[in-house]
Design a protein around this nucleic acid. Sequence first.
DNA 1: ATAGGGTTAG
Length: 774
Amino acid sequence: MDVSQLRACTSTRRLRSIHALLIISGRIRDVFFPTTLVSLYSRLGDLRSATLSFAHTPNKNIFSFNSIIATYIHHGLPFDAGRCFRSLLLAGPRVRPDEFTFPVALKASLDLSYGKAMHSLVGKLGLGWNVFVSSSLMHMYSRFGAVRDAEKVFVEMPERDSGAWNAMVSGFCQNGMAADAVRVFSAMVAEGVRVDRVTIASVLPVCAPLDDLLLGVAIHVFAIKQGLDVELFVSNALIDMYAKMGCVEGARQKFDDMLDRDLVSWNSIISAYEQAGKPHTALELHSEMQNSGVQPDVLTLVSLASAVAQSGNALSGRSVHNYITRRGWDTDDIIAGNAIVDMYAKLGKVELAQRMFDRMPVRDVITWNTLLTGYSQNGLADEAIDVYETMEQSEGIRPIQGTLVSVLPAYSHLGALQKGMRIHAQAMQIGLHSDVYVGTCLIDMYAKCGRLNEAVALFEKEIPRASSGPWNAIIAGYGIHGYGEQALRIFSQMELEMVKPDNVTFVSLLSACSHAGLVDGGQRCFHVMQTKYGIRPVVKHYACMVDLLGRAGDLDAAFGLIRTMPIEPDSAVWGALLGACRVHGNVELGALASEFLFKIDPENVGYYVLLSNMYAKTGDWDGVNDVRSLAKRRHLQKTPGWSSIEVNNKVNVFFTGNQSHPQYENICKEMVILLAKMKSLGYVPDYSFVLQDVEEDEKEHILSNHSERLAITFGLMNTSPKTSIKIFKNLRVCGDCHNATKFISRITEREITVRDSNRFHHFRDGICSCGDYW
DNA sequence: ATAGGGTTAG
């Protein structure tokens, strides 16, 4: 019986029989044998036998302890490893930890103070000279975010091997200090230290955060020269680097060149295609992976869920969910759970996202964000806000950047200024108020909640403006308030500051121009976008242009643009044309636009209403009835119009013709007085906005009962003179009410702001900021 | 007889 026989054992069964012989012969009392058995059992995966062998070892020496500690660590049991380490310390003066003990035992440290205690023990035992020990200390420090301590160990090391340098490189990498990592890597190369596969695999992931493809390529070339590019870990890191730099072809090339691929290789290439917005290729690769016999893990499924979300295939979504559930990953792995919530949200299945959320045993801030974003992106602002408010009350969850970025648009959407301001305060508390993304949302929120000045102040003084986001937000802000000239001025400033505009910039600009009736300016932007910036217009740009030309009355040009546009017009484009036809009374073209709209977007009631309005205006009651019966056949109901006004912190909501408000009688009396004054100043009711075929008196009554009129009159009665009045309307403001509000603002000497579903109207002294391009 | 490190994610 000798060591070679022991080592040759490839099964626990064989090992156990030799173990029995050792016991029978009594040689087990030689500490050498049980200790060897510990590591052999461990290597064969028999943790129980390894543990027993250690327990029955007489006169345990340092080899015994080192073996059992390593065994526990390799089996992912740091707690047990720590327990053994402590018993080693208590084992008496004959057995002391050595340079083999620490590299393993340090992995059992659960926090920084434990690690520091280990470090001082290393000092006391005089083991700091050993590169393995010191490198392990560096890893320990890096793991707890104390890179500076790791660096100190590194600097004080008497000699450093590649492993020590690697520890420094990866320490910086894992703590997000990409530049330092690259610095150490370069020094390593400069000093002629041998760079190995670990070095390359550690340094490659920093290229993406540094946004430095050139660096990535340089490292790749370096790896090829050293013959390291064929290493599995290096290849995998290269695939990921190319993918993250937006270079799927590079990733694919590397993947195809590989002789053997492991799970990580497949996961990386699948996620590469998913992140490049090519979900179908990702899904194909997944089946290829299964055909090649590689079993997917959680990460594979996480990428798959994102790919499915992009592909929009709800059925595959279901099967991905089932697969994850069958393995129990949906509740065991928070990332998998989050991925499912996200997938359902992106597929528009918010109820299923909510159900998954409810089933999750543990939720982190990402889980909350995902659900919140799901509601927000699916247009359910109220639900999004509910999620946020519930999150605030749950233990241990603090909002992060993504949370604020998701919840702010919900407040913007509802015009909830007070709540939006609370988020602003919270952003300040967590130091995110100057963050570009949060800041952009704040600009948007203030602008959409009627505080354009606040938005401008943030833009001017607070938010970094090197990227297009904040610029787009402030341009859009000026736009919805009708300040087209300012929007154009900001754009010039943007060009001056060399900030590159993107397609969103031009959507904001074009809609700003259309709101202000700046036809020339808009056309110039549309031109500049293509010639100077090489941005090909997307359908949204065309919708803005049709709106711009149409509202200004050039329906021929608007229709001409639709006919010549190189991409398929969508409902927004035809809707813009229909709206323009309504304003300018072109029934024929309006009917044509409606035909398309009823096909593309048959569920949207708004278009039926617009067309029937047009017929009503010309007195074509047959036309009105046709449209109405069409809508009825499709089981569509007109969205009830409502307006709200906040007085003394109480929100008052008025529906059209709503007589249930406690002050309704008084509002009517006030309205009669007001109407007389308005008429004496030249107000003529525009009955074309009355959609019913009724007598003139009745028409006047109907107009006076429009929700915005009720809300304004209520506001006049319940606020002190000279103060401004702010109204919110869920649909577009009625044309006659718009005209009436101009008179009201003059008569009452009040500033009146109406925020409708489209934009702001600021009325002052008989004029509206929109210049009647509403 | 015992030792360190590296790649993929919501």
